[in-house]
């Protein structure tokens, strides 16, 4: 059950996790990208946090839409439009419901996943954040309640699966075969996104 409070914790947890892992994200992006993923995400979550301190929201959808707007206008790079579009669609799917059941939430996440796919023209196995979004959403879609520990594990394994992939999209694609052997930074931050949600939901229950 996701209330407006849970949505807020989700975003706050995401902020914490991003800031804790900022250097790690930067290091990952230096290996196969341009080294700014940690910086980009940190800028986004800090701006989002400021916004959350200032405004109050009636529904999870309203809160997530506001977060989407911050991500779109503050992150830039590849991750800004991707997280921004995903959250925008999640919020749209949430509509003005005051609470979301696990099933509602899975529909929201599915909309987010589709947004990442569409905006990034990403396919499975191309070594992008989609390789976390897709398995996480696909695994749990259709279930009545979410096993949050299992979801976290799925996300973690999905991140690991990117190591062996040969990048086809994003900057890592320029490396061709040299991208193999490295974790995709956006996949790593997406794991944090789902972990933040799981932690918020588990605390709620």
């Amino acid at each position: 059950m996701i209330t407006t409070g849970t949505a807020k914790s989700w975003m706050e947890n995401f902020k914490e996790l991003i800031l804790e892992n900022k250097d790690e994200l930067t290091t990952l992006d230096q290996a196969i990208g341009d080294g700014d993923h940690g910086i980009n995400m940190a800028r986004g979550v800090q701006e989002m946090d400021k916004m959350l301190q200032e405004k109050t929201f009636e529904t999870p959808g309203a809160l997530l839409k506001a977060a989407a707007m911050v991500f779109i206008s503050k992150i830039g790079g590849a991750s800004g439009p991707l997280y921004g579009s995903a959250l925008m669609k999640i919020a749209a799917e949430a509509g003005d419901k005051a609470e979301l059941t696990d099933q509602d939430l899975l529909a929201c996440l599915d909309a987010g996943k589709k947004a990442v796919q569409q905006r990034g023209r990403a396919e499975t196995g191309e070594k992008t954040m989609y390789d976390v979004w897709d398995p996480v959403v696909s695994t749990f879609r259709g279930e009545e309640t979410i096993d949050w520990e299992a979801l976290k594990t799925t996300a973690q394994q999905a991140v690991k699966s990117t190591v062996d992939m040969h990048a086809k999209k994003g900057r890592a694609a320029y490396l061709g075969a040299r991208s193999v052997g490295h974790t995709d930074p956006g996949a790593f931050s997406s794991r944090l996104f789902f972990e933040a949600l799981a932690d918020a939901a588990q605390k709620e229950n």
Binding site: D36, S73, I75, G76, G77, G80
Partner: peptide, 11 residues
């Protein structure tokens, strides 16, 4: 944009 980071749509 920020250094080496695409500017955002609003800009």
């Amino acid at each position: 944009g920020e250094v080496f980071t695409s500017p955002t749509p609003d800009q």
